[in-house]
Design a protein around this nucleic acid. Structure first.
Lengths: 231, 231
DNA sequence: ATATAGTGTGTGAAAATTACACTACTAAAT
DNA sequence: ATTTAGTAGTGTAATTTTCACACACTATAT
């Protein structure tokens, strides 16, 4: 049992693509870097994994240190291992995404020095990002677009109680197209995992809409009945 | 630009879940290890990534060295980064899958010493594997099951020219259920990415079936029209 | 010739998807 | 009190897709 691991000069890092939905727009979280390389550039929140933590833990820790956010459900989506993606040496990065209710207006406040600030930026019209982060973002965005109809991701972006119109505009933001209101409502309600509440929107200057809540239990059922070919 | 990377004692490895389809059964490629830890155990083909190669390259190289197979299209599906998955220290492993025509009867012949032998094993009834390889396999299997209807993976498992019956039994093996023959054929042909050839099976003791070829160009079109909600 | 095993084709019923336009409600302005 | 502006909320018919189902054709082996 005493053969050894090879000794290689390389490190892992974690990068996070954090999606939020606010004012009808889909946004991601960026930081302004305070460290070389790419000092002052905008980047995805990310940093090195420590020796004694799992990568899942690292992702949570790093996000917290760079943005002050915690308790997100993050999920790994791809690992980037090109040779020259980091100018200082061999860095393999595991990319995570998470979805968050920006409505729970936690303030964004970096704990560590590595980020000057953290802020939300609309996914359309992103600036050039440090390293290969633009590519990482694009990979992540296309993953969640595909997962939208397979996993309960939409609901993680909305407040706990939401209107059907909000839900629809979220779908429209992610898929970047419009839906017919009646069909959308019919379909969503037909799934049976939206629970109608006895409450309405407040403080709106137009007819208040009904609020709904997402019923996770039922959602899982719908998922497991997903379709193969036929028969 | 002269800050340095942290120095951490950790390594990456790559593990491969290689699916093949043979005699109506779905199989994966296993090796018998010739090295501690887990000497003599069965395991997925996998090894350490070198300093100066991308992880994609590493996957291809390692698979070749352990099995003699090359030129597979491998795709990354998950990275496993738990702390104690390797008894000798911190090893993060990037898992890949590939699908291969076992019919092109390349011989399995390990080049390196790390594997005593390599062989196909049916996915049902797998023995206990080294490390966390059972979990890696399961993760990979469930991914390809889900990708079956989204990506052209089925065709990579079949010979270039195949019959509809072969295609159907492959789907049945992956999804582990039966389909109605008529509907299956209708549906598959309806997609329009199967090209009917003017050839028939040979050397069969029953009515020879038409051979088809997969038309990749059309497949891509079908994919891009994939469904959102409606409208 | 006949038994066997797999290929190959059509139709009707049910379900899902799509297209499409108006009324109901609320708050604010007049 | 009435109007206005803005959004919520609803039904139906046409079309398309999915599914369940049964029998004839072809080739080989005996």
């Amino acid at each position: 049992m005493e053969s050894k691991l090879p000794s290689i000069d390389s490190v892992f890092s974690v990068d996070c693509v954090i999606f939020g939905f606010d004012a009808g727009e889909l946004k991601i979280l960026l930081i302004e870097r305070n460290e070389e390389p790419f000092k002052d550039w905008l980047a995805l929140p990310g940093y090195f994994v420590e020796q004694n933590e799992s990568i899942d833990n690292a992702a949570a820790r790093i996000l917290y240190e760079l943005t002050g956010l915690n308790d997100l459900h993050m999920e790994q989506f791809h690992t980037f291992g090109e040779l020259n993606r980091h100018p200082q040496g061999r860095v393999i990065t595991v990319a995570y995404y998470a979805l968050i209710r920006t409505s729970s207006k936690k303030e964004l406040r970096p704990i560590s020095q590595y980020a000057k600030k953290a802020f939300w930026h609309p996914v359309n019209d992103l600036p050039k990002l440090a390293f290969d982060h633009t590519k990482i973002f694009e990979t992540g965005f296309s993953k969640i677009r595909r997962r939208l109809n397979t996993q309960p991701i939409a609901f993680e972006l909305l407040p706990e109680k939401f209107t059907l119109t909000q839900l629809q505009s979220l779908y429209e933001a992610i898929e970047n197209r419009k839906f017919d209101k009646r069909n959308f409502r019919k379909k969503m309600l037909g799934f049976g995992f939206l629970k109608e509440l006895n409450e309405k929107e407040k403080d709106v200057s137009y007819r208040a809409a009904k609020l709904y809540r997402f019923d996770k239990r039922r959602y899982m059922k719908v998922l497991s009945d997903e379709g193969g070919i036929e028969n």
